[in-house]
């Protein structure tokens, strides 16, 4: 578990996302939106290709937080979905989750995240607040 002190950098996590992961996530979450499965539908609605569920990317951010905090209780989690994670049929996509502890107060640590894919930020202002101590 990383040290949860204000300013502490957290070890960057990398996750590979493949189309089959999106199929599994659709089953697990109940979100069968075809834009996460079907290239033709995705393009028809103006997307660049099959994209990951925003909630899948958010789940990866939460996974990094759980890794950093030894599965601490999450009291708040939020982000904007600012750019799609386009998942190629071959090779998928790599999501990189970085984070830094912004503050520790009142038994809670606030973690500011940076979530990128191909060098581009895909989440806006991703943030988690976890209970510590």
């Amino acid at each position: 578990m990383a040290t949860l002190e204000a300013g502490a950098p957290l070890p960057t996590q990398e996750y590979v996302v493949r189309r089959e992961d999106l199929v599994a996530y659709a089953q697990a979450s109940g979100d069968h939106n075809p834009i996460h499965q079907d290239e033709d539908v995705a393009r028809m609605v103006g997307l660049p290709g099959v994209i990951a569920h925003g909630m899948y990317t958010m789940a990866l951010a939460a996974r990094a937080v759980a890794t950093w905090t030894d599965d601490a209780e999450v009291v708040e989690l939020g982000c904007k979905f600012t750019a799609p994670v386009v998942v190629a049929a071959e090779g998928g996509a790599t999501v990189v989750v970085a984070g830094v502890v912004k503050s520790v107060a009142d038994g809670c640590a606030t973690i500011a995240l940076e979530v990128t894919c191909g060098g581009e930020k895909v989440l806006g202002a991703p943030k988690a607040v976890v209970r510590v101590g």
């Binding site: 069968h32 834009i35 609605v45 999450v74 009291v75 708040e76 989690l77 982000c79 904007k80 979905f81």
Partner: peptide, 13 residues
């Protein structure tokens, strides 16, 4: 549903 994308999400537990 195919015309929906997610813009923002926040959970307060």
């Amino acid at each position: 549903l195919a015309r929906i994308v997610h813009g923002e999400q926040k959970f307060a537990y």
